[in-house]
């Protein structure tokens, strides 16, 4: 068994594809129309055959209250690894991305949290020191 997919629940798939590709820099992997929505995934260009992120419609009525409660408390839905949180923060702020937490040292990791404009907060994180150093 292995993990090949992870999901984020998005309010608008087209808007999400735009954000996750043009701002975050992921690339579209699969887009299969399924009626009003699509099976839509992106991957990191650093790992094109790696885990796919599914941009999944948030149409179930339970999703909005759930995500609203997480967002109100600043809790990210998921986290992506970056080499340099400060550099990525500056790049994304330059693209108009809004952060709820600027880069902050949290023990062995530095983290920051931004809004994906489609209903979620997302964390970026980097180990301050590579493991084993």
């Amino acid at each position: 068994m292995r993990i090949n997919l992870a999901s984020v629940l998005v309010s608008d798939q087209a808007k999400a594809l735009e954000f996750y590709t043009t701002k975050l820099g992921f690339v579209k992997k699969n887009e299969v129309p399924m009626g009003e929505v699509s099976w839509l995934t992106v991957v990191s260009p650093e790992d094109p055959d790696g885990v796919e992120l599914v941009l999944e419609p948030d149409s179930h009525p339970a999703v909005r209250p759930f995500l609203d409660a997480l967002v109100a408390d600043g809790i990210p839905f998921t986290s992506f690894a970056v080499a340099d949180v400060q550099a990525e923060y500056e790049r994304l702020v330059g693209l108009g991305v809004q952060f709820t937490q600027p880069p902050t040292a949290m023990g062995p990791v530095t983290t920051a949290v931004f809004d994906d404009t489609c209903g979620n907060l997302i964390q970026i994180a980097a180990m301050v020191q590579a493991p084993g150093e």
Binding site: D73, G74, I75, T100, Q101, T111, V113
Partner: peptide
Amino acid sequence: TLFEICNRLSS
């Protein structure tokens, strides 16, 4: 945010 406060206290 509450999330940041919790993480700071913990880490």
